[in-house]
Every structure is written in structure tokens, then in C-alpha cells.
Amino acid sequence: MNPVRLAVVSSGLSVPSSTRLLADRLAEAAGRRLAQAGRGVEVETVELRELAVDIAGNLVTGFPAPTLRRAVEAVTRADALIAVTPVFSASYSGLFKSFFDVLDRDALVGKPVLAAATGGTARHSLALEYALRPLFAHLRAAVTPTAVFAAPEDWGSAGDSRTAALAGRIGRAAAELAALAAAPRPEPAADEEVVPFDRQLEALRTGPR
């Protein structure tokens, strides 16, 4: 069987970044789950910090630079996506949103997506449900039931209860993503004929013939 192509989008701004660390942990966990199911995995990571100027240029001109085009293609052709953003002002970062604005509107239709975020306090975890999940639902992606948030205290010492809790969330979300990625993708439904409204009204007036 062909390996699962997994795209990982990280929009952390610092180096090193807890956002990138969480993205890598999720990718590793998903890869292990797929290996247990007998599937190989090819991981391609997109670091948005390196594409910030290109993303802004694309929004202004409508033409992507070669580096941005490669990133867009990696996400578009992937079988599954892990998307991780820092939380600013109670929502995803502007850089994160701008990248997904650049994608074709049908690029994520039916694609399994694991949404995750990092933030300075656990209160920001609500952004997963009222910001990230609606975003990917709007893009018609197949979002995993479990989303993952990591606050600074979640990166404690080994054996710490909070660290164990984060590892548990990562494992559960990765298992859900692996199951979706390994499942056969349904064929897109054929477009139904759209009957103009005036013809529908005319049919109601005249009735069956």
C-alpha cells in the first residue's frame, strides 16, 4: 500500500517554538499509529514563519512565490493534515489564517485534519472549539474529535501529571487521525443539476402534465 502523506503546518513565531514542538510530537504519534496499522508515512512539515513575506505577497498580488507554491502543494496533495497555531487574542494567529486563505477553497474537502494549539494559559484552550474547529468545518475538512492544546505547564518534567495528560491527548488525537487517514476516501458526489428558480415556479404554476 502507498504510504500516507502527512502534511504538518506549524505557525510558531519563535525559534525554538512550543508550537513546532507540539506539531512534531503529534506527527511522531500519528506515524507510530499508522505503522502499527501496517502503513508507512511520509511527513512534510511547513513552517509558516519562513513563508510570512510570501504569504503576504500572495494576498496582495494573487501570485504565490515558488516556496509558497510548494507549501500549498504539500498541503493540497496530503492524505492528512496536522495544523498547529499559537493562540493570540483568543484565536489562531493571523499568519495561520492567512495561509489557509491562500489555499484553494476545495483543497481540504474531506481531508482528515488534526487541529492543535499552544498558548500562555490553559484558558486559551477554548480557541480550539470556537475558532479552529469552525475554520476547518467551513473548509469542509474531516476534523478529528480530539483537538490538542498545550499550555506552558503541560511541558513539565517527565512523570509529571500534566505532562502525562498532554501525552494522553496527543496519543488519542493521533489515533483518530491515523484511523481517518488510513480509511478509504469516498468518491466525491456528482454535482446535481441546478434548476433555475423561475423554472421551478413555472412548474408549480402549471402542475404535472
Score class of each variant (00 low, 15 high):
residue 151 A to S: 12
residue 195 V to E: 12
residue 176 E to G: 01
residue 143 V to C: 03
residue 172 R to E: 14
residue 79 D to L: 00
residue 192 E to R: 14
residue 124 H to N: 13
residue 24 D to P: 10
residue 28 E to A: 13
residue 77 R to T: 12
residue 40 G to A: 01
residue 24 D to H: 13
residue 146 T to R: 11
residue 120 G to A: 08
residue 2 N to W: 04
residue 178 A to T: 02
residue 122 A to R: 13
residue 9 V to P: 03
residue 93 S to F: 05
residue 78 A to I: 02
residue 20 R to C: 08
residue 166 L to R: 06
residue 133 R to E: 05
residue 65 A to I: 01
residue 146 T to P: 03
residue 14 S to C: 08
residue 173 A to H: 01
residue 42 E to D: 11
residue 14 S to L: 13
residue 14 S to K: 13
residue 103 L to F: 10
residue 184 P to M: 03
residue 192 E to L: 14
residue 88 F to I: 15
residue 109 V to F: 04
residue 28 E to K: 09
residue 43 V to S: 00
residue 70 R to I: 11
residue 120 G to M: 09
residue 193 E to W: 13
residue 126 L to Y: 05
residue 95 L to T: 05
residue 62 G to P: 06
residue 104 D to N: 14
residue 76 T to V: 09
residue 11 S to F: 06
residue 67 T to D: 07
residue 4 V to L: 00
residue 16 P to G: 09
residue 49 R to N: 09
residue 30 A to N: 00
residue 183 A to N: 02
residue 139 L to F: 11
residue 156 G to Y: 06
residue 168 G to H: 11
residue 93 S to K: 05
residue 175 A to M: 00
residue 146 T to Q: 08
residue 92 Y to A: 06
residue 78 A to F: 00
residue 119 G to N: 03
residue 29 A to S: 07
residue 36 Q to D: 15
residue 103 L to D: 10
residue 170 I to V: 14
residue 145 P to L: 10
residue 35 A to S: 13
residue 102 V to Q: 03
residue 70 R to N: 15
residue 197 F to Q: 07
residue 105 R to C: 07
residue 161 S to L: 15
residue 135 L to P: 04
residue 73 E to N: 10
residue 93 S to V: 06
residue 73 E to G: 08
residue 113 V to M: 06
residue 181 A to M: 03
residue 139 L to I: 10
residue 152 P to S: 11
residue 172 R to F: 10
residue 172 R to K: 15
residue 156 G to H: 11
residue 111 K to F: 00
residue 112 P to Q: 04
residue 109 V to S: 05
residue 117 A to P: 05
residue 157 S to L: 15
residue 209 R to L: 12
residue 69 R to M: 11
residue 160 D to S: 14
residue 103 L to I: 12
residue 151 A to M: 05
residue 67 T to A: 09
residue 42 E to S: 03
residue 9 V to H: 03
residue 155 W to R: 07
residue 164 A to F: 14
residue 48 L to V: 04
